[in-house]
Amino acid sequence: MIFNAHPSLDWGRQSYSGRASVLSIGSHQGVNRQWIGTATLWGHEFTTTGFLGVSTDSNGVISRVAFPSWLTIPSTYSLADGRLWHFFFAWLLVINGGLYLLHVTRSRHLSQDLWPSAADWRAIPRSIVDHMKFKHPQGEAAKHYNVLQKLAYLSVIFVLLPIIILAGWAMSPWLNSLWPGWVEVFGGRQSARTMHFFVAWLIVLFVFIHVFEVIISGVWNHLRSMITGNYRIIAAKTTRVGHEGP
């Protein structure tokens, strides 16, 4: 919801430098006075009526908001409520993230299970092909993370999440003042806002791919193993596990 209060993203220290926005979502009236929603990415305008800029809310009313009401919390315009949700879950992320980092480093989960081995690096091309074919490791190999999975986890844990948290902090006027100028590492507050936003979508993308992979590689087995630690190995099965039939 917060984005809808100012649906444009800029690069630099401020929003009104005169340069074009990285991304902006808006609306204008067409020839027949109908509202047309647009998204402009690096100067390229796309018509997005029905989704971005102009959409139909839950009461069937056409409304000119950047993100449609079904994609925002709350569904109606309330910057104050949106911020309450945002900062509450931001704290949950920071506290959980801190505890998680402490745990993975002390339990050696990081060095033993997550960090790619030499064999892993060599297996990257094969792993890519396996993923494209939706082919999943069988037997003992299914007990370990594969190399692409490891790299995906590591980049979320050590790149995306730290960036999104720091870029979030970079938007707080008080945190800015703690060490004047530190926000420049992002290129300024508005660059930080832009990165916060794009990284958020990268994390959403990760979640979707992750859940997709869990589903196609045997959802119940995975869920059970996450909770109990027991992962059933299907040794002699020749068909692809969990993959949809012909």
Binding site: I2, H6, Q190
Partner: peptide
């Protein structure tokens, strides 16, 4: 820098 609650800065 003026930071609006809406998200923009000037």
């Amino acid at each position: 820098r003026h930071d609006c609650v809406e998200g923009w800065s000037a």
